[in-house]
């Protein structure tokens, strides 16, 4: 009994200094670089371009943080982590923030010593079927076989949905998301299910994309949010408000192109506060007064980031949908900057 306590105490002494380290910001500043954990390869969110540069929606969120802290969007280091190791990487301070594709769920938030900052992407699970199947709704998929990738909430969502609608189903699981798509393409399953964002992105690999259709139903809520360690509320505030600033910038019509002009000329009090012309909002979080200006100037507002990597002009071709601003019928809203 006592020896067990000694081991536990030893472990606590070794681990807690890392976890309880309150001033993440100080560490980051001393290091001169923000450490972000991102997915290794997800089309549109985190990938490597032909030149070897890491790009994507998640990478830009990391850059925005770096810009807010250092005034330089290039002062970041990326650690690609798979979904299995990502939480451990954040808990052990190997990274300062996860700009990853994690759904905000109760268990991940309450049990893990980690906190979600704010939703940066509303996703949901959808289904793709062949047009030739003549299916118009998920509710017509009774008895269908469904190809899915392993290790996510995908399987649980299907089980919940089909059971609550008293429908039969067969799940065929694959370790790799692309393998699930490939098997569906080869006719192993009637349907292929994943987050709608993934269906859009990975669906581009289908032999003939035009033969397939994504069904209208979204059977789950998948609010995707960057994560930080629990116990450092200043750091959490910095992350959340930096992301809020990107959304507020879109609400206020501030873009990377016009931010200089607005900073010099705008009479809108909220713009003046956000860009650090009248108030010094940054200082309360230990950041320079130009924190939001730097993030917007160097990375762009939320809409710009979305359009750059996911929007209709990209190969992924996603519409804003739920990710539109609240004023446009979406769910993106930043709390007021005052």
């Amino acid at each position: 009994m006592t020896s067990r306590w000694i081991v536990a105490a030893g472990f606590a002494c070794a681990v807690l200094p890392g976890l309880a380290a309150a001033a993440t910001l100080d560490d980051v500043k001393a290091r001169g670089a923000l450490h972000c954990g991102t997915a290794p390869n997800i089309p549109g969110y985190a990938f490597t371009d032909d030149k070897g540069d890491r790009r994507g929606f998640d990478i830009d969120l990391c850059k925005a943080m770096a810009a807010a802290i250092f005034g330089d969007a290039n002062k970041f280091k990326l650690t690609p982590v798979g979904p299995r190791d990502a939480f451990a990487a954040l808990q052990t301070a190997a990274v300062d923030i996860l700009t990853h594709r994690f759904t905000w769920t109760y268990n991940r938030d309450a049990g893990s010593g980690l906190n979600f900052t704010r939703v940066m992407f509303y996703d949901g699970q959808g289904f793709m079927v062949r047009k030739s199947l003549n299916v118009k709704s998920v509710n017509e998929l009774n008895g269908a076989s469904i190809c899915v990738g392993q290790g996510t909430t995908t399987e649980l969502n299907i089980a919940d949905y089909f059971r609550s609608h008293s429908m039969k189903y067969t799940i065929v699981t694959f370790a790799d998301l692309d393998e699930a798509r490939r098997a569906y393409d080869e006719g192993r399953c009637d349907s292929w299910s994943n987050d709608r964002g993934s269906l859009a992105a990975r669906g581009l690999g289908l032999k003939n994309r035009d033969d397939h259709v994504i069904l209208p139903e979204t059977i789950s809520k998948e609010p995707i949010a960057p994560m930080v360690r629990q116990g450092d509320s200043q750091w959490e505030d910095i992350a959340r408000w930096t992301f809020d600033a990107l959304i507020a910038a879109e609400e206020l019509g501030i873009t990377s192109a016009n931010v200089d002009e607005l900073k010099a000329k705008s009479e809108n009090p909220e713009i003046k506060r956000l860009l650090g012309v009248t108030d010094d909002l940054g200082q309360k979080n230990g950041l320079p007064a130009s924190w939001a200006y730097d993030a917007i100037k160097q990375v762009g507002n939320y809409g710009e980031i979305f359009e750059r990597h996911l929007g209709p002009k990209t190969r992924l071709g996603m519409s804003r949908g739920q990710n539109a601003l609240w004023t446009n019928g979406g769910m993106m809203m930043a709390p007021p900057f005052r």
Partner: peptide, 9 residues
Amino acid sequence: SDPAWLIGD
């Protein structure tokens, strides 16, 4: 995974 190359298997 680069969208620029997402055209097929």
